[in-house]
Design a protein around this nucleic acid. Structure first.
Ligand code: MN
Ligand code: MN
Ligand code: ZN
Ligand code: ZN
Lengths: 164, 164
DNA sequence: CTCCTAATTGAAACAGAGTTTCAATAAGCC
DNA sequence: GGCTTATTGAAACTCTGTTTCAATTAGGAG
């Protein structure tokens, strides 16, 4: 499996959505004001990088991309945490167990199909399935906060070329 | 969240199943012979500990329990890996992100409801849900090898005492 | 614009799970 | 018993994630 596989999120989620980048930046500023935080060049860069690179990025991916612009690892870590609290960003636990981040604003919840061969991540929505999940949890007296449903296997592309 | 929460697997899975311990030990030996590995006291102890303690144990839980009998951390690590390859043991990703292990032989597939408050793990089978998963994956041309469906929230016990 | 203060930053050090290395040890076979 | 090879475990290392704290900066008050 390639070390940095093609980890696309809904292609053109940001791009295909007029004003999306604008809106998420505004929501970001709103959150900053509301919580008494400050707008710094680092925080701006990190959000912008997430917006322009439509992929599932790890903390380290972002750090490596922005260190040349003087953004530290710790700041990336803290900013991602803050963006998650602000519900502007979310994370997936990828194959290796590390967290990968994606913009969340206006995006519906989805789960991931992870190809063990090429490392590619496909996104999937199955409200029908989640309805059953919620129903069963309810009958067990378990109140769901969030869930992680990750399916591992071979994507259509890799299933054809059956070479290991 | 308590550091070592009550992490029960199906109560009496091993206990309520006459000869289970016996069968899994035999399967273990078979695997050793088949792959040219050797039966050591350490490997025996680790498997036995998993069998007698019907819980979802972390690598460290097992190490802490067996170090007094002269079993090293590395050996626990390697043995768990081997047991997973032999399909005798499986792991769950618990609340903190660490792996917890459980015996697998003859046990039906199940998923986990993980309480973020007390750390307790409940097991759940929902074939209906998984049927939908497989159906949708199929239509997407994705061939499922395995999946991990973990639901985080509050168990019934913790939901009542609403203290944080 | 300047000053002030509290928020922010990032190097460094730390934590914890997981993994490799390698010399010493033990299993299984003759 | 003796030989060969797998196994073991201390130590060192990797990687992700996290805390600490002195230096820096945002942004509001003057
Ligand atoms: Mn996604
Ligand atoms: Mn289980
Ligand atoms: Zn693939
Ligand atoms: Zn609970």
């Amino acid at each position: 499996m390639p070390e940095n596989a093609e980890l696309t999120i809904f292609p053109t989620w940001t791009a295909g959505r007029p004003g999306y980048a604008q809106r998420i930046r505004e929501a970001f500023q709103e959150h900053l004001e509301k919580t008494g935080l400050r707008l710094t060049s680092q925080r701006q860069r990190i959000l912008d990088y997430l917006l322009t690179t439509e992929k599932h990025l790890s903390l380290n991916d972002i750090y490596q991309a922005l260190r040349k612009h003087g953004v530290g690892r710790v700041t990336v870590f803290r900013t991602l945490k803050m963006l998650e609290e602000a519900k502007l960003v979310d994370h997936v636990t990828a194959a290796g167990g590390t967290s990968r981040f994606e913009v969340k604003l206006e995006r519906p919840h989805h789960d991931h199909l992870i190809c063990v061969h090429c490392g590619g991540i496909q996104e999937v929505r199955w409200p029908e399935l989640e309805k059953i999940q919620d129903k069963i949890c309810k009958t067990m007296g378990f109140s769901v906060a969030w869930h992680r449903h990750e399916v591992f296997g071979r994507c259509s592309a890799c299933a054809e070329g059956k070479a290991s």
